[in-house]
Design a protein around this nucleic acid. Structure first.
Lengths: 388, 388
DNA sequence: GTCCCCAATGTTAGCGCTAACGACGGTCTC
DNA sequence: GAGACCGTCGTTAGCGCTAACATTGGGGAC
């Protein structure tokens, strides 16, 4: 249906373009504005292409131009706030734009300008609370900044798939590419590609030559650890995230630093994979060992698993073991017991990403920058002084 | 930096375009194919616009045409698998495409064809596990189907913002719009807008005139309720989701239907808002009443809150109260006790969405269709026969 | 052999916009 | 008062592609 309409319009337009110039000049112009008449008579291509009062087609710049009695270029100038337009004309064009409810075509603009007004977002990994929230925050911020977001997400990070995704986005002429992925490999792959556009990544480890945004994971871990130390714990264990995660590494680093600062023993962390099941397994192991009086767990999901293991083993939390998590997912307040954890405001992180993108786009030559936020400790009921 | 590069390239290209045609025709063509020579000499616009062996610029269709010794139109035909190209020519063009590592510009294609090869995705609401997973599944499926995804998400569903988002997407010439939002209002708003492109929504309630995809929430609720009935429970309560959620309404309906089918009393559900806190409050209320021996809770987060309330009140689950959730979020297996719940495969849902979009795009006149999946019950440790 | 037809190709004209330049009055300057 | 100069427009040429038409050069039918 829509196809037929378009064809009909094209034919009609062509007929008008041919017959118009032949008859009109002889008659007295009906339209008072001479400018309007001239531009209408020019009839070169685009002018005739969209009917005078076609109710179906989206209005183009030429429709606005005719309506305002100026050339399409003047409309363009008004649209882009360029100088060289008299105030009165500018006003008249604005009115025509409003009258026709005109909005410029991003596609055509992208074509002519070789920029698209859109940003590519790659989210790699599980759709966990953190990345999803950050992506959402970014999306909203981008929209507010007038950018479209072209998303290319993947459940698992695969170098080939990632590379393909980047190329796709580049072809779409995105102006920047944002990567939200905890895995180090994602950042590495991206750095290896010359996308030709700026890349902003969420990365908590220093990444030379890359614009990045992150929470200070190490500081967050120190917060958590020092909270435990402050309560009087001396034997504190750590359940870490996967080794390919930058956040996991940074949290581990912060944890160790805090212990060392207080002269406490730093044991090798138990490795997890962020999922509750691994936290459960880690909990079993720690309880078997029986060394620790407190655990700093890499994230809230694993904490849940660990709490579960404690419950199974009849170990009271926080009575016999204190637990601190990381992230503060919405559910953490309702764990049994409510989890003391380190809160990251992912929404703001997403907005920081957009802010960084805007900065980079403003001055592409700028040296890679790093925006960092410090997470905050939320004390609930899973921590207490050690027994005795 | 890139700006300077681009400018330099343009100048260089222009210079070549002027000098090239002047000298070449006099000499013996170096390239054997006469076609190539002719097309190169034509020099109308685009041909000269991208240098012969410009190492920086992305190759265009004209570069491929010259390389293969054919016209750009033939390249286009090969690209789009159109008939009217000799097998040998087709092969040669394919080789040139590969040799130059050419990929067509989606922007230009969108411009000429008035279609963009992209789909708009609107995700409205909290970035919960369900919607996020569905969005991810959709994203992957769309990519596999060769579509780009332009995302416009919003944390809260606001009619104006939604309308704006739709218009933005339409301007971007998306070929279809997908809405992932549990709230009825989202669907209503979308139906009120004539986007001019097909709309596919995740909606579990019948929505006349809309293509939709969903899980059969009612069937899932029946599954859960009948599980409890099967265990011997006769007084079963329900903690429902917010009234503006279609899923909540459908689950409530299925719950009531199952009870009625067995001649059991249907009490007014306790209202929640999907969050753990509301589940906690609902739990307190139910425990105060002391009527129910089992609860079917609208989702897993609220179940967590309810379990927490039970724990606080010293009520044993499942000993004194059985609890069934809905969704099967990854953490559900590690609640205390592990939650019996109804699993929805959100990833597949996302893929169903893409499949529906593809169907609709294939035949836009097709009557609005509905794809439905039946969720499955996952029995864990939060349910048991009633005491006595 | 002549004519017709069709497969295989080439040519032309846009899609709706921006960028670069051209044109046209009027000031200002000396 | 004539040329330089500027503010204000208008015109032209693309961006890289597709759609529609024009143009070839054989192969059959007669």
């Amino acid at each position: 249906m829509r196809g037929a309409d378009a064809a009909g319009r094209a034919v009609e337009a062509r007929a008008r373009a041919v017959s118009g110039p032949g008859s009109e000049p002889a008659d007295t112009p009906v339209v008072p504005e001479s400018g309007a008449d001239a531009s209408a008579r020019a009839g070169d291509g685009p002018v005739g292409a969209s009917g005078a009062n076609d109710p179906v087609g989206v209005p183009t710049m030429f429709d606005v131009a005719r309506h305002a009695g100026v050339s399409h270029q003047t409309v363009s100038r008004v649209l882009n706030d360029l100088p060289g337009v008299a105030a009165a004309t500018r006003e008249r064009v604005r009115e025509s734009i409003a009258a026709l409810n005109y909005t410029p075509s991003p596609t055509a603009r992208a074509m002519a300008q070789r920029r698209s007004g859109s940003i590519g977002l790659i989210q790699a990994g599980r759709p966990d609370y953190g990345p999803s929230s950050a992506a959402l925050g970014f999306n909203e911020a981008a929209r507010e900044a007038g950018y479209a977001v072209s998303q290319a997400s993947m459940r698992t990070l695969d170098a080939d798939v990632l590379t393909q995704a980047v190329h796709r986005l580049v072809l779409q002429r995105v102006e920047a590419i944002v990567l939200i992925s905890g895995e180090r490999e994602g950042v590495d792959v991206l750095r290896g590609i010359d996308a030709g556009v700026p890349v902003v990544a969420v990365a908590s480890e220093p990444e030379p030559g890359l614009h990045r945004v992150s929470f200070d994971q190490s500081a967050g871990a120190r917060l958590a650890t020092e909270h435990l130390i402050g309560l009087g714990h001396r034997r504190i264990a750590h359940v870490a995230g996967p080794s390919d995660s930058m956040d996991a590494a940074e949290r581990r680093r912060g944890f160790a630093a805090a212990l060392e600062a207080h002269g406490l023993e730093v044991r090798e962390p138990v490795a997890g994979d962020w999922l509750a099941a691994s936290g459960h397994a880690a909990g079993r192991r720690l309880l078997d060992e029986g060394w620790a009086t407190a655990v700093f767990v890499g994230n809230d999901q694993m904490s849940l698993g660990l709490l579960h293991a404690c419950h199974d083993a009849g170990v009271a939390v926080p009575g016999e073991l204190s637990v601190v998590g990381f992230d503060d997912i919405p559910e953490a307040a309702f764990f049994t017991p409510p989890l003391t954890t380190v809160r990251q405001d992912f929404d703001s992180l997403g907005r920081d990403i957009m802010a960084t993108v805007a900065d980079v786009l403003r001055d592409e030559a700028a040296a890679p920058d790093h925006t960092s936020r410090v997470p905050e400790l939320v004390v609930r009921a899973s921590t207490a002084p050690p027994r005795g």
